[in-house]
Simulated assay, not measured.
Amino acid sequence: MKRSLTDTAIRNAKPHQDGKPKKYTDGGGLYLLVSPTGKHWRYDYRHHDKRKTLAIASYPEFSHSEAREKHTEARALLARGVDPSQHKRELKMADATENTFEAVSREWLARNKDGWSESHYDRSISYLTRDVFPLLGKLHLTSSPP
């Protein structure tokens, strides 16, 4: 696969003079999209005869070599028949459900169960299930309260 971008070219990349985004290709579908608001790594690919684009990351948060690594991972997923965009969404969803108030609370209860009496554990789980989880259970812990 031919690589065409260099670190110097990436640092000096500018959008079109009229402010429209400009693509700087790196090969294999990977490119740097430069807009007036920033520089972003993207990967164009085809899955089930549909053209798709995977947003990899922003530059300089992700270096050229890191973007190439992510690109290689996405190509490997495609080779196995997995849509990289769908895979990325599924990973985000799994992370979001692992960090909900209910998931963390249940984990905390399980860790502390051995040190509590059975009646204390039963009251705690009953209270959380009945009163707290319906209101706060789906709340992602990095978000602010409703």
Score class of each variant (00 low, 15 high):
R3C: 01
S4E: 11
A9M: 12
N12P: 00
A13H: 09
H16L: 12
H16D: 09
Q17Y: 05
D18Q: 09
D18G: 06
G19R: 10
T25H: 05
T25W: 03
T25E: 04
D26F: 13
D26A: 02
G27R: 13
G28D: 07
G29P: 09
L33V: 12
K39E: 03
W41F: 04
R42Y: 00
R42L: 00
R42D: 03
Y43C: 05
Y43I: 00
R46Q: 14
H48T: 08
A55G: 10
I56Y: 04
I56G: 01
Y59L: 03
Y59M: 04
P60G: 03
S63K: 05
H64Q: 07
S65W: 00
S65G: 13
A67G: 05
E69N: 04
T72S: 12
E73R: 09
A74E: 00
R75V: 06
L78A: 12
A79E: 05
G81Q: 14
V82G: 03
V82L: 14
D83Y: 02
K88Q: 15
R89H: 13
R89T: 10
K92W: 10
M93R: 15
M93I: 09
A94M: 08
D95M: 09
D95S: 09
T97I: 14
T97Y: 11
T97A: 09
N99W: 06
F101L: 06
F101T: 01
S105E: 08
E107A: 11
L109S: 02
K113P: 00
G115C: 11
G115A: 13
G115F: 06
W116V: 06
S117V: 09
Y121F: 15
S124T: 15
S124W: 14
S126N: 07
D131C: 10
F133A: 08
K138C: 04
L139A: 09
L139H: 08
P146T: 09
P146M: 08
